[in-house]
Amino acid sequence: MSVIDMNTFNALKEAAGADFIGELIDTFLEDTPGQITTMKNALAAQDADSFRRAAHSLKSNAATFGATSLAGLARELEMLGRENVLEIGNRLEVLQDAFEQVRGQLDGLR
């Protein structure tokens, strides 16, 4: 099952240029693990603001590539962070899994 909305992805590819999409995917795949780490560390430090910021960036990037469900998960975490709620259950693990699936598919779309 596709975890990437191909309409969004193709529009991005067209706007950025086919020659540029690979570089863009690389940047996204390189930046995201760091954002997930930031969120983990923020949870440990009970730092809701930095948790929210990292979730915000991840959400924004995921949406840019049409990774709709990953964006939805990140958005949910951003909202929780905004409300200062850091009891997030297993949501971060779910998000990590969702990212792995997105990575798998984007690797093939370069």
């Binding site: 991005l12 706007a15 950025a16 240029g17 540029f20 570089e23 863009l24 940047t27 996204f28 930046d31 960036s57 924004s60 990037n61 840019t64």
Partner: peptide
Amino acid sequence: DNKVNRMVLSRSLEQ
């Protein structure tokens, strides 16, 4: 502050 956003926006506008 988001690198992907900067790249997408600048590339689109340069195009």
